[in-house]
Design a protein around this nucleic acid. Structure first.
Lengths: 267, 267
DNA sequence: AACTAAGTTTCATTAAATGAAACCTTGGAA
DNA sequence: TTCCAAGGTTTCATTTAATGAAACTTAGTT
């Protein structure tokens, strides 16, 4: 059930899509060919298929490809019914108002952290600029909070996949140190980011756990060393834990197909 | 190059993904089976593949599937490098501030309108609630603006695909009336939504055209009959036309792979 | 415990993907 | 304009994967 690199043709097609996305700009066939291991005609037809399916957009003027708008439409649907994001929204807003800080909602995507939402007291969210973003698990508050509450074997497997790149002086750069930290987080029920990913950026984070203690995601309150310190953030622990519990309960309820809500098509 | 329903296995897999997304809630295998034409083992393996690829998320507790978070990550990338959305953002904000009204950015996705962004002067945008949303082309300002500036044959083909469902008393409900309206819009260079989709909701819209007059998207200023009227909206035409031109020029420049920007991974 | 519905696997068959090579097509340069 | 070369597209015999009827296993009843 883990991400396999090659499930038949579908896996290959998605790999191509990922490669185009990774290039981060409109690319020509030849550029994808150079960046990819597929033989020319195979890649050609995969790109044809993806384009014809709207998963890649083709600009006939520059003869370039970009990830397609069908993805945006599908992601809208994914986000909408990701029980977590849907249900968590009002809680993020409440927490943001209560703490005056930035609130993050994230979940695990393979060994990485995927941010689902962000709520900032001051400036309005720049749409899509944060949701969908990925980050490292070993040096972010939300990442560590989730790793700490995973079953031993799963956590171990994900820890092995971390890069342990040193972003700052405070980055935990080995599996051993991280594991010790995770034990601590598990004991406390919450964790910190002590400027481990970006200088001056600190946060306190809690996991969102289902009734069966499965890790659904994580919440964090982020601030800077100019504004506050770890002790200051620690005061919010009660609030975010309560929110995390409520979100988990609501998400669980939402998952059961008892209410068949019609999708809203108007804007 | 138009959306084909079945390009091999990839097309089928995406069809399944679309079906799960359309159900709009966590679904079990059996439900997808009932909603789908695929034989049981085929559908089973397609769902397996999609899950293993992260395009579907599987909840082991309820044994249900939802569109996967990988979509959110890919869409982030798609949105980021959709030259239009990226480039248009500051212009939407400026227009919103200037007019005090809601600004929409949309593009065509097959015969439908896909909203890429929205900017509201008063309340901050609810993330993902609007971007990714689809709407009808024949009864929205942005839809008509785009149809009006399409090549004759393309427009004809898309007009034939419209449902012409009557949403309000003002909805244009036949290809003939719509075609006449489009001629008018083409002559004027801008169009209106006269409460055609939702009562009291009116807007003025312009296409975003490339230098070769290809339709890239559309912009609209939306308001209500309580706040203003068509004549009031018409005053904004000059501003949004200027923005549309600037956006087109910037998007075009952006499309040429001269600047290789590294993707930002921090949050 | 017996039953039923839901989900999963098997395997011979069928269909699709593959890629080396050849073939177009487009945009420069002579 | 003609030629050339790089980028893009098609062919076709071969390989590989997808297919689905039926059989099987599992989970959830009655």
């Amino acid at each position: 059930m883990t991400r396999a690199s090659g499930d038949g043709t579908v896996g290959k097609a998605l790999q191509v899509l990922e490669e185009v996305a990774a290039l981060g700009r409109p690319v020509r066939f030849g550029e994808v060919l150079a960046a990819s291991d597929f033989p020319k005609p195979t890649l050609y037809r995969l790109i044809q298929t993806l384009s014809s399916q709207g998963m890649l957009d083709h600009d006939p003027e520059t003869n370039t490809y970009t990830p397609g708008t069908r993805l945006v439409r599908l992601a809208h649907s994914a986000w909408r019914q990701s029980s977590l994001a849907q249900v968590a929204r009002p809680h993020l807003e409440a927490l943001s108002a209560l703490t005056g800080e930035t609130i993050h909602l994230a979940k695990l995507d393979s060994a990485q952290v995927l941010y689902l939402d962000k709520c900032n007291a001051e400036q309005p969210v720049e749409m899509y600029s944060d949701a969908g973003k990925v980050g490292p698990a070993y040096c972010t508050g939300v990442g560590k909070a989730m790793l700490a509450f995973l079953p031993e074997d799963e956590a171990q497997s994900l820890i092995e996949q971390q890069s342990f790149h040193r972003f700052t002086d405070h980055t935990l750069t080995s599996a051993e140190v991280l594991t010790a930290e995770l034990t601590q987080i598990r004991a406390n029920g919450y964790g910190f980011d002590r400027e481990e990913h970006e200088p001056t950026i600190i946060c306190v984070s809690v996991p969102i756990l289902s009734q069966t203690l499965r890790v659904l995601g994580a919440l964090s309150v982020t601030s800077t060393t100019q504004r506050t310190n770890l002790a200051g953030l620690e005061q919010h622990v009660g609030d975010i834990q309560k929110s995390a519990q409520t979100i988990a309960a609501e998400a669980q309820r939402w998952s059961f197909p008892d209410q068949v809500k019609q999708q809203e098509t108007r804007i």
